[in-house]
Amino acid sequence: MRNLSVLQRQMFKSPILAQGLIKPSSSDQKSKNLYFSMNLTTLIDAFCILVIFLLSNMNGQLQNVNIGKDIKLPIAEKTEILNTGITLRIEKDSLYLDETKISMEELTNKLIQLKNKGPKSLIIQADKDSDFEQLSYALRAGSQAGYEKYAFAVLPGKVK
């Protein structure tokens, strides 16, 4: 077993090869080796390309935002990376603060509570066809709670 390579040493331990040794084919027939060596180099090449592609696709987004089913976000060209913050989702007749449904009345108090815990940015998600009246409540509540930054969630793209 001396002077054997790593792969050759593994070959001896391989169950497929062992089966081949236990059940040797008869002398009449041509012996078939059950062991085959797979060339991993091409597979590793493909994997490397995949890893590079996935790494280059990482956009540095710090917060993963769940977009509501009924929400179509507006499109904008000059956008910034979405930083961490408290997410406020405005749907047709309901408000969701960090995925928790809340009423209009308790919005300001909840925002004050959450602001004391850390983030000073308020991420607002609303449907592109919603009226400013709905959005205005959120802006007013945010300013009452003392938020300094509003981030309006948008999809990057070119406006037609």
């Binding site: 935002v65 977009i67 904008a76 990376i81 991420i123 930054k149 981030a151 969630a153 990057p156």
Partner: peptide, 11 residues
């Protein structure tokens, strides 16, 4: 990918 348009508010 979701991005943002930011506005600041004087507090």
């Amino acid at each position: 990918e979701v991005r943002s348009i930011e506005t600041s508010q004087a507090v």
